[in-house]
Simulated assay, not measured.
Amino acid sequence: MKFLKESDGSKTLHIHIDFRKGGEFVNDAGKKQKAYDTDDKTWLHLNFFQHE
């Protein structure tokens, strides 16, 4: 997680979640599930603490 300063002086919060393709995660019920979506995505959410 990091804040990057943009050319207009504003800051954007960047969060990166990384895992290897085919990796497995354990859900809340204790069952293993495979990671299926490995494409990079950009999500625009409401401003977070006055930052984009």
Rank of each mutant, 00 (worst) to 15 (best):
G9T: 03
A29V: 05
K2Y: 06
F25E: 07
H14Y: 10
K31A: 11
N27C: 06
H16E: 06
F3W: 07
D18T: 10
E52N: 09
L44W: 12
D28K: 07
F49R: 15
L4R: 10
K41M: 12
K21H: 05
F48L: 10
F49V: 12
I15A: 11
K5A: 07
E52T: 10
N27S: 07
M1K: 03
A35C: 01
I17Y: 08
D39S: 14
E24Q: 07
D18W: 10
K32D: 00
N47P: 12
M1W: 04
K21T: 00
H14K: 14
Q33S: 05
F48G: 12
G9Q: 06
K32L: 09
V26T: 09
T38D: 15
L44C: 15
K11D: 01
W43K: 14
I17R: 04
H16V: 13
I15G: 01
I15R: 02
T42G: 11
H14C: 14
D37L: 03
D18R: 11
H51R: 14
F3E: 11
T12D: 06
N27H: 02
K5S: 06
M1F: 04
F49Q: 05
K34G: 04
N47A: 13
R20E: 02
G22R: 00
E6T: 15
Q33A: 07
K11A: 05
S7M: 12
K31C: 09
S7W: 07
E6K: 15
F19E: 04
E52R: 14
G30M: 02
R20N: 03
I17D: 09
E6F: 09
F48H: 12
S7G: 12
F49L: 13
D40F: 13
N27G: 03
V26I: 03
A29F: 10
G22K: 02
D39A: 14
L46Q: 12
S10A: 06
A29M: 02
K21Q: 08
F49E: 09
N47E: 09
D40M: 13
K2M: 00
D40T: 10
K32S: 03
I17K: 06
G9H: 03
F49K: 14
G23Y: 02
D28N: 08
K2C: 04
D39P: 06
F3M: 07
V26R: 07
N47L: 08
K2Q: 04
F25R: 05
K32H: 00
E52Q: 05
D39N: 14
H45R: 15
W43F: 14
L13S: 11
D40E: 13
Q50A: 15
K32E: 03
G23C: 01
K32F: 05
